[in-house]
């Protein structure tokens, strides 16, 4: 931990380097942690904690190695630590499952990035009404049960529609990522 009272130009340069590296790799790190934890708020918390730990340990980072791999290793531990913290009252994965997911997820970062780019295009191609439905379903604070009751429908029907749209998006993503790889 650098001494706050003893800042030097070198320290500033390190800080600048860290921020630049982290900003560049943050989306990948987020994708990686996003594949381990179920909700965006969990992911937010773990990514923030990972950033803090990365900065604290930044003097151990070997400039010759890949920042992303290094940050993901830290992120993996932070996700496990977070899991232990919330496991009692939340449906989070067991440690053995989470570790497997993390190890394998680390090898799939490129695939995740391609899927996200494809998702953007798939959403654009989606009929406006379906997109609005998805947006609404994923809006924080919106409860499906209340929403369906208001629309005179059932929660089961809403979840069914949600399932169909997710599957539709997955098919679209698969198609686009395949075409991209072929190209």
């Amino acid at each position: 931990m650098p001494d706050p009272e003893n800042q030097s130009p070198t320290e500033d340069a390190r800080y600048e380097l860290f921020v630049r590296l982290f900003a560049r790799h943050e989306p990948d790190l987020r994708r990686f942690i996003g594949s381990l934890l179920p909700t965006w708020s969990d992911v937010d918390e773990v990514v923030q904690q990972t950033a803090i730990v990365c900065w604290r340990k930044f003097d151990q980072f070997d400039a010759q190695s890949q920042f992303m791999k290094w940050a993901c290793v830290i992120g993996r531990f932070e996700a496990l630590a977070y899991r232990r913290k919330v496991a009692r009252d939340r449906l989070v994965f067991r440690e053995d499952v989470l570790e497997l997911m993390a190890d394998e997820g680390l090898e799939e970062l490129d695939a995740r990035r391609a899927e996200e780019e494809a998702l953007e295009r798939c959403l654009e191609e989606m009929p406006e009404k379906e997109r609005q439905f998805l947006t609404l379903a994923y809006t924080p604070g919106v409860k499906i049960a209340e929403l369906s009751a208001r629309a005179g429908s059932t929660a089961a029907a809403f979840y069914m529609r949600l399932k169909r749209l997710r599957a539709q998006l997955m098919r679209c993503i698969a198609s686009k990522t395949l075409h991209r790889r072929k190209a």
Binding site: R31, G34, T135, T139, P140, R166, M170
Partner: peptide, 14 residues
């Protein structure tokens, strides 16, 4: 992991 990724980005998009 694929579904998590999709779910996560839809959440963020909203």
């Amino acid at each position: 992991r694929r579904y998590f990724n999709l779910d996560f980005h839809l959440h963020h998009g909203s």
